[in-house]
Computed example of a mutant assay.
Amino acid sequence: MKIIECPRDAMQGKDEFIDTAIKAAYINQLLNIGFDTVDFGSFVSPKAIPQMRDTAELLDLLDLFRSRSKLLAIIANTRGASDALHFEEIDYLGFPLSLSETFQQKNTNKSIAEALETVEDIQNLCETKGKELVIYLSMGFGNPYGEAYNGELVAEFVNKLNAIGIRTIALSDTIGAASPALISSVFQLNVETYPQIEFGAHFHSRPDKVEEKILAGIQGGCRRFDGAIQGHGGCPFATDELVGNVATEKVIEIIESQGFTLGLNMEEFHEAEKLAQFVFQ
């Protein structure tokens, strides 16, 4: 069972710029906890996401020698991928691919067809550099734009990504609309069909719906969950202001209640919780 902590997702929507030294102190604390991966930054246009303009600078301030956690950076095009691949410290690149044509245009200014071509180009770059490409399949459990959505569509996208050689796919409940039954069935179908692919869950949710979504993911065979301490960040397109990232502390509680051992240093986790109150004040 893997937990991916996402300070990048938590920070990127804040209007006020968080000082680079503060970001580094927070992420260094997260690196002490023992998460499988920390989604720490992104190589995208500073105009699109000003909060992430210091990602390269941030890398110089991270203490990776004592940490077992891997680093993930989000990219949205081949230029961003090329920039990220210059850094040996980064293990994973994450690319947002959407089942929704409308959302793909909003998110990366590309059509789905163009985005798939970009995915293939980036996958080739990653293979030459020994990195792994993680695809975040947004609108993975529903579509608010009136476009077609069903479980077969998800499987169709997964099949295309499998053909390209993608081995990690995070199914994303972008607007927090997924029902437990849908979550369980979508994961079960794809986990059973593509055992060579690691499927993760990037859920957005109202706080009172987190438990049922995590349990449904586990039931469907998901063993990789994203979270953000205290539930900071989330999707600006959600119509419910209570919908945001799932709180990592809640994810840990739910997963451990099901008998899984995560091996996290909870003393360090509680220190990170204290620091988060300062970072996100």
Rank of each mutant, 00 (worst) to 15 (best):
I3V: 12
I4L: 06
C6V: 09
P7W: 01
R8P: 05
K14Y: 15
K14D: 10
I18E: 10
D19C: 06
Y26G: 02
Y26C: 07
I27C: 14
Q29P: 03
G34Q: 11
D36C: 13
V38M: 03
V44H: 14
S45W: 01
P46E: 10
K47V: 12
M52R: 00
M52L: 10
R53C: 11
D54F: 11
A56Q: 14
E57A: 12
L58A: 07
L59P: 01
L61A: 14
L62R: 08
D63Q: 15
D63T: 15
R66I: 10
S69G: 11
S69R: 06
L72D: 06
A73P: 05
A73N: 02
A76H: 09
N77D: 15
T78S: 15
G80E: 07
S82D: 09
L85P: 07
E88F: 05
D91C: 01
P96D: 02
L97G: 00
F103T: 05
F103G: 13
F103H: 14
K106T: 15
N107C: 13
N107P: 03
S111T: 14
S111P: 07
A113I: 13
E114A: 11
L116C: 02
L116Y: 00
E117S: 08
V119Q: 05
E120Y: 00
Q123L: 07
T128Q: 12
K129N: 11
K131V: 04
E132I: 05
E132H: 06
V134S: 00
V134P: 00
V134E: 01
L137S: 04
G142N: 09
N143F: 04
N143K: 05
G146P: 08
Y149K: 07
N150C: 06
V154Q: 06
A155S: 14
N159C: 11
I164A: 00
I166M: 02
T168F: 10
T168W: 10
I169K: 01
L171D: 00
S172Y: 01
D173F: 09
A177K: 15
A177Q: 14
A178T: 06
L182M: 13
I183S: 03
I183A: 12
S185F: 03
S185E: 14
S185R: 08
N190W: 01
N190H: 00
E192C: 11
Y194F: 14
Q196S: 03
Q196D: 11
E198N: 05
A201N: 04
A201G: 12
H202E: 09
F203T: 08
F203G: 01
D208V: 02
E211M: 09
K213D: 03
K213C: 08
L215I: 05
A216S: 11
Q219Y: 13
G220E: 09
G220V: 07
R223C: 11
R223M: 14
R223V: 08
R224P: 05
F225N: 01
G227M: 03
I229Q: 02
G234L: 10
E241T: 15
V243Q: 04
V246S: 05
A247P: 11
T248F: 05
T248W: 02
E253R: 15
I254K: 08
I255Y: 14
E256T: 08
E256S: 12
Q258W: 03
F260N: 09
F260G: 06
T261R: 15
L262A: 12
G263N: 15
N265I: 10
M266K: 12
E267P: 00
E268A: 13
H270G: 01
E273C: 14
A276G: 04
A276N: 04
Q277A: 12
V279M: 08
Q281A: 13
